[in-house]
């Protein structure tokens, strides 16, 4: 196993002051490790991978890894990624976003990136809250849970990120949690290799802002809750409707074969030039 740690260190930027900025018990570090392992397992060169991030805690992930990285404006990570992919379709473009970045501020861009089916992979790190700005409720805060802006419980219904992406036409949609790190490795590799828009929703607990207000004494309690409440899709379907409401299904929700926008664009260019 020691090779796993050595491998991760090959990809980190050691000048960037470690340990990283994430709070103790934050799941974003696990996602960072998983991302590195999956890219290494695919055998991609560092120069062929572009990591795009928006604003938020998850925006710190590309800072620490030695790929082509870009830290963009709030919510607009997918638009930058679209431009990069169309300009150079050879590159593997991975977008790392938080839930607020992806669905509140950049909700519009997520919908249209999924509709266009551009060959970009989006990792949405869902921690149910705006962690970096002080724990305000976001569009994914579960109904009834507490945050600084909802001291008496959230009234609104929450967004189901995977369902939104599936309905909008993304060609690969999956959900996983940080407790299933090895499953996360293979899901990220599969999403990156799949043609068309791929979205992986990763449930990553935020104990500092969300857990402490919602009766989780330690971050370990949040991880135990994640482990208990996230059954695989097959097991989730067998549950009774009351239990299904409390559980969060994990696994692959959508996988369809269709070419990405950049391939269609390349074909159109060839046709217009009269090439075959």
């Amino acid at each position: 196993m020691a090779k796993v740690t050595q491998l991760i260190h090959n990809y980190l930027r050691h000048s960037k002051r470690f340990p990283h900025v994430f709070c103790p018990g934050c799941g974003h570090g696990i996602v960072l490790g998983s991302l590195i392992r999956s890219i290494d397992s695919m055998g991609l060169a560092k120069d062929d991978v572009v990591l795009v991030a928006g604003i938020g805690c998850s925006g710190r992930i590309p800072v620490y890894v030695d790929f082509n990285t870009i830290h963009t404006t709030h919510g607009r990570a997918l638009t930058f990624a679209t431009g990069i992919k169309l300009a150079n379709p050879r590159l593997k473009v991975i977008v790392v976003m938080g839930d607020g970045d992806a669905l509140s501020i950049g909700g519009n861009h997520l919908i249209h990136a999924a509709r266009r089916n551009i060959g970009v992979t989006a990792l949405v790190l869902n921690n149910h809250i705006y962690g970096m700005t002080g724990g305000q409720s976001s569009c994914t805060t579960p109904t009834g849970s507490f945050s600084t802006t909802t001291p008496f419980g959230q009234l609104e219904d929450e967004f189901d990120i995977s369902r939104v992406a599936k309905v909008c036409g993304a060609s690969f949609v999956a959900r996983t949690t940080v407790m299933q790190a090895s499953a996360m490795d293979s899901l990220i590799s599969e999403a990156v290799m799949h043609p068309g828009f791929g979205l992986v929703e990763i449930l990553s607990p935020c104990h500092t802002q969300y857990g402490r207000k919602n009766r989780f004494k330690t971050c370990v309690d949040m991880y135990k809750w994640l482990q208990k409440s996230s059954p695989p899709l097959e097991k989730y379907r067998e549950l009774t409707p009351e239990k299904q409401e409390k559980a969060i299904a994990t696994g692959i929700f959508e996988k369809k074969d269709c070419e990405g926008l950049e391939e269609k664009y390349a074909r159109m260019r060839r046709n217009l030039r009269g090439e075959r």
């Binding site: 196993m1 991760i8 990283h20 934050c26 998983s34 392992r37």
Partner: peptide, 12 residues
């Protein structure tokens, strides 16, 4: 080793 968010533990 794979669930440490800080890459701070190693088994060999």
């Amino acid at each position: 080793e794979i669930h440490c968010p800080d890459f701070a533990i190693m088994v060999y």
